[in-house]
Amino acid sequence: MSDEDFEPKIIAFLCNWCSYAGADLAGVSREQYPANILNIKVMCSSRVSPEHVLRSFKKGADGVLIAGCHPGDCHYINGNYKTIRKADLMKKIMEDFGIKPTRLRLEWISSAEGGKFARVMEEMTEEVKEIGPLNLDGTSLEDDTDE
């Protein structure tokens, strides 16, 4: 597939209290961003497990975003700190499965950061486009050396 035509599919897990509200604010402010991203609301970013991320890739996602409240602001005290640790783990697992860890992105987006939400969507779509489509047919492992 030529990179020009490639429209990546991205799944975004957004925590209810900050990032989902940030995504709403992007709408209220009429920010425009690529339509490649589909949001799934969870109550806290810490609800997202490695299975959810891996399943997304397996089912055809080219990128996954997990977005939560800024450190210290999690509605559930410290969920986002757990998310940081889990995301590190997920990246390791992804490597084992031959998926470039850069396909997973962790972001802190507050309910006041509509602009940031749109920018992250934009950037991420571009980045994943650059990495190219994910082919998980079991034959080719992605090379993680960034040349």
Binding site: S46, Y76, K82
Partner: peptide, 30 residues
């Protein structure tokens, strides 16, 4: 918050309204 559900190694914990099956079905549908 559901953080216990995302961690439970045996899948014994269900986050009502945000069950694993629900999130998986949403991923698949998307």
């Amino acid at each position: 918050c559901g953080s216990c559900a995302s961690l439970c190694p045996t899948g014994a914990i269900e986050h009502k309204g945000f069950k694993d099956e629900m999130l998986e079905a949403m991923i698949d549908a998307g």
